[in-house]
């Protein structure tokens, strides 16, 4: 007993114990699919179109990993809520999604050593809650062919006033903020950030174009010119490509390579 009493001050002075978890920093990267090799990346969609991409760039504003899985059919969510994120990459990167080589984000990511179950890709050039943002978030061009017909196409998408949802309920003017359109979520994932580890986002072009019916694209003003996707919610091809851009399943995949 006396020995315990004598030792107690020494034990207490040892700054023992922890409050739990750990703060970590890591490098973050984004890349196209492993089998991409630059311009000319070709694949066939489920609608039977053979797409050859010459350019596919995405403006990623930020990456976030989230500890919770949203409840399907749950109450309306805010764009983001403090207290649920375990990792973030807050400096943006213009990603060439036809390059398989990881492209490093300009600043390291940070987070806590907690398990993440969902991921978020923030598609924005300004702040996520900006009321307007002229930044081109998707910039793509290529050629498409089906049944012997081939034509070029290109698309440049923004998320700004052009996509602001109409207010349906006057009592809820803020029910559909633009920031919800800019955030792709929830992307299923299962990883735990680690100190000096890495976070890799791979972007797969195939599901991006999976449901696009290219034949419905408006004809170009002059023969041989590319058919252009509309930068608004109008027409099947533009709506489908924008839905692909915002698809949480298939297009985006997080991993933590060694």
């Amino acid at each position: 007993m006396i020995r315990l009493v004598l030792l107690l001050p020494l034990l207490l002075a040892g700054c023992t114990g922890t409050t739990g978890s750990e703060i970590v920093t890591f490098d973050a990267y984004a890349a196209g699919p492993e089998d991409a090799a630059g311009p000319g990346y070709t694949f066939t969609t489920s609608r039977g179109y053979t797409v050859s991409l010459d350019r596919l760039r995405l403006q990623i504003g930020g990456l976030y990993l989230n500890r919770s899985v949203p409840i399907s059919g749950g109450q309306e969510r805010s764009c983001y809520l403090p207290g649920i994120y375990v990792a973030e990459v807050t400096e943006g990167l213009l990603v060439d999604a036809l390059q398989p080589r990881p492209q490093r984000f300009p600043a390291r990511g940070s987070g806590t050593r907690d398990r993440a179950l969902t991921g978020e890709v923030w598609l924005t050039g300004g702040r996520i809650d900006a009321l307007s943002d002229p930044t081109v978030l998707l910039d793509t061009a290529g050629t498409v062919s089906r049944d012997g017909e081939t034509f070029p196409f290109e698309a440049q998408f923004t998320i700004s006033d052009n996509r602001r949802p109409a207010v349906v309920d006057p009592a809820r003017p803020g029910a559909s903020p633009l920031c919800l359109l800019r955030i792709v979520s929830p992307i299923p994932t299962d990883l735990t950030p680690s100190q000096d580890g890495s976070l890799l986002l791979r972007i797969d072009p195939r599901p991006l174009f999976a449901n696009v019916d290219f034949e419905q694209l408006p004809l170009p003003p002059s023969p041989g010119a590319p058919r252009r996707f509309l930068d608004r919610e109008e027409g099947q091809p533009s709506v489908a490509l924008f839905a692909g851009l915002r698809s949480a399943l298939g297009v985006y995949r997080f991993s933590s390579p060694p």
């Binding site: 703060i23 976030y64 983001y80 973030e88």
Partner: peptide, 19 residues
């Protein structure tokens, strides 16, 4: 302190704990 804040330090909101 260690907690979440956003003082505009980065291009996007900082949502994980920091010192």
């Amino acid at each position: 302190f260690n907690y979440v804040s956003d003082f505009g330090s980065a291009s996007q909101p900082t949502l994980v704990p920091a010192r």
